[in-house]
Amino acid sequence: MTSQYDATAAMEIVNADAPGAACVEDGVLFLEPSELAGAVRTLRDSEESDLVFLSNLTAVDRELHFELVYHLQSLDLNHILQVKARVTDREDPALPSLTGVYHGAHLQEREVYDLFGIRFEGHPDLRRMFLWDGFPGYPLRKDFLQMPGQVRAGLPGFPHESVENAWPVPGSVPQRPMHPNDPQPEGELVVAEEGEETS
């Protein structure tokens, strides 16, 4: 069974090499973005942690900041460690690339760049991957296609779960075309009378 590698032990390994580069919050290891590549290299090369395999690399838009999530795996010791880093600049988010540490980070960092617009400094070939050059915006950001009425992207409630949560959110403009099952907007239904011209 793959065990979770202790975040505190990982923090000690990193901080022994670069003091202050790592901290633990709620059992999750957070790395300082400026020290990211060096800290992950230390975790890879240390015999205790031996995190040689980059299992997963992705990002989460937390609205106030971006959270980069790395899952690092040791094949010999069979443990996994989740590492996170925060990027607070939403205008031009950037952090160091891990391509020098893991060759497998190449395509995953390009994917994050493509869909979140986070630059990875030192990536040798940082181009959009799925979308074309000049595509407006970064789709996986929560503010992509800002809707009128300040409706947040996402699902506010189960359809017809309750009146408060039913779609559309009261007082807002629906952010998708009306579906026949959606609650009808308030107001009189206007029916064209027979013989009247409809424009």
């Binding site: 299992s55 997963n56 992705t58 989460v60 999530v69 899952h71 996402g154 699902l155 506010p156 409630g157 189960f158 779960e161």
Partner: peptide, 13 residues
């Protein structure tokens, strides 16, 4: 692998 984040809502965050 599937990485899911929940914010307590009915859909994955």
């Amino acid at each position: 692998g599937f990485y899911l984040v929940s914010d307590g809502g009915p859909a994955p965050y």
